[in-house]
Design a protein around this nucleic acid. Sequence first.
DNA 1: ATGAAAGCGCTAACAG
DNA 2: CTGTTAGCGCTTTCAT
Lengths: 382, 382
Amino acid sequence: MTTIHDVAALAGVSASSVSNVLNGRTEKLSAKTYSRVQAAIQSLNFSPNRVARQLKTGHTPMLGLLVPSTANPMYGQLALNIEAAAQSRFGYSLLLGNTHRDKQQEARMFDDMLSFGVRAVIVVSSLADEQHLNDAAARGMAVVSYDRAARYARDTSNRPVTAAPGAAPSTNSTGSVDHVSPDNFQAGYLASAHLIFHGHRHLAFLVPDGDTVSRSAKVAGFLARAEEGRKAGLPILSTVLKAPVVGAFGDSELLDLGAAMADQLVALSPTPSGIVTVNDMLAIGLMSGLQRLGLRVPGDISIVGMDGLPIAAFVNPGLSSIAMPLGEMADAMVERAIARATQPDLPPFNALFETRLIERQSVAPPRDTSSHELRDYPGDHI
Amino acid sequence: MTTIHDVAALAGVSASSVSNVLNGRTEKLSAKTYSRVQAAIQSLNFSPNRVARQLKTGHTPMLGLLVPSTANPMYGQLALNIEAAAQSRFGYSLLLGNTHRDKQQEARMFDDMLSFGVRAVIVVSSLADEQHLNDAAARGMAVVSYDRAARYARDTSNRPVTAAPGAAPSTNSTGSVDHVSPDNFQAGYLASAHLIFHGHRHLAFLVPDGDTVSRSAKVAGFLARAEEGRKAGLPILSTVLKAPVVGAFGDSELLDLGAAMADQLVALSPTPSGIVTVNDMLAIGLMSGLQRLGLRVPGDISIVGMDGLPIAAFVNPGLSSIAMPLGEMADAMVERAIARATQPDLPPFNALFETRLIERQSVAPPRDTSSHELRDYPGDHI
DNA sequence: ATGAAAGCGCTAACAG
DNA sequence: CTGTTAGCGCTTTCAT
């Protein structure tokens, strides 16, 4: 391995000068020394050892990312976007961990990253308990948490209450964990509104068992729109269906879980005509299960998913979904994580991103309803 | 940050003893010293700085992984499996890079990883040129390349010729890059055989433009089976369709690419009745495109994909696919990468893994063929 | 403008 | 068995 000293020797200068060149401190070097060193670096194809540098400076251009599973395309995409932002905008590399939504794993991975000198990590945690995040933050890690910045407070039109940047969700009382999230309440609200708009009066929200900040927010939004409908005199039935989860969490399990839920769904009497699922993979699984049972989507049952995955456009029928601005959120998270790693005293950050409905072919008026609600509704304009 | 010296002070011993405890050198310590140090470590919640350790030892428990894009579920899953194997079997963490099949990126990421002290990396490279891999290997990196261990040599029954462990593909002349791959020739062969078995006589292989070792192998297998059919007197037509690729490579592009190819496909006259695609995402895109054109799968056109993605079971109709043993391959790659990092003089390694057909609903006899080939065929038994 | 020297936290001889 | 010492490759005062 070639070191800074080899370069120094070749250029006939001291190691310090090489270091200065490496760090672009042009003002401390004469032009000729500078170029001589440059030449030496080139000819030796030298690239400084980041480990040594890190030991000295305490910094390393590495960003941690903890996701439940990259096998879920949602997180695969998130990883892609985050890596791209980290790399292109800050020159950071990505240290990835799959947590399987396991608290132990998550904690262990935090430790690992800490021991590698990683100072900034982005976490997609499903755990209701945020303590381990706070622990990590307390240990000097800049952590930004994805999908947990729920806000239940709404104004009278169900718009999110504009919170001061410092307004943290209730789970984050101690401090320095930042939050970036799609507006999950809005997502649930939009999905529900879409179904109601198309005439559905018997709605169900499908979600794997296990509490999560984002899931609760989605459910709350879903329920809120149904309640609004009722207040407007519509005979709306809204129920929440929890799918029993056994074993590990993963991409394939979500699909399987959705498929399995088809049976439970049709066993319901009366069967809901409009379903919203907590994510697209679950919706795709459900749709497949329903079809296997001889039901038609959207003929017999309408479905709207959430995530806005590309694949949702390619299943048959195309799945209507609530899309999240993945790229923007990834940018925000990366920026924030790195910013806080440098300036730990930044004020708490809480960003909620707008979601939007993508209409495709999985929603149609219900079979047994002749009168649709065609008037305008608030959900249109959120 | 608490260091080894804090622990030493608290335990009333020297730093070396702490180091010895940390590294489990029980034979060098008295039991009482050992436990005293242990206690100190516990009470300080001390965990050694890996960076410092690495600077000293030159090793770091970090595995590099370079994939085209984790947005493609195939690679998201691969990343998951690799991370799991690395973590659970060796305690290694995963440094992930998305290359977008860009040679510059790939080379830059190798440099990055090298500078982080990573000594073992797994690469999914699409590039026909393997030079940058060899370069990295020459610079002291243990690199195992995925999906490039093509072997065209076959015996008379089209079984892969069992090669000595040292038999490297032609592109790997200089040395120390190891190869792990599904048997792509077999994959192509099986897909082709499946279609022929169901009576298809006009076959097409759909692949994005751009040469790749794995793609070539798949095509070769596809063509080989068609040729066999011809030799057996069947009037088989087999063509290869290259989809023009513009812009970056990614998950969504594959789906879109497949959908776009539907038009080109039906423009062909006569239109092939049986299609095999180089991967599942392309197949799913194609199926969707075909359906949008009013064609039915498998009624009008049969499709078989490759990869065996879970999602393939959930599209409508279910996509028949050639599955690859992802978990086994991930294990083999991780094991090999880490082994070679420790013992650079290991003999070259080349592993080809069996693929298998998963039958679902996307293949049926062609519309205009009344006589099916129902006799047995070699592909059944590969 | 340049170099000498100290040290980041750890490990690995080598003495004691 | 235990402690002392000398770095790993780099950055960073502080002299010169």
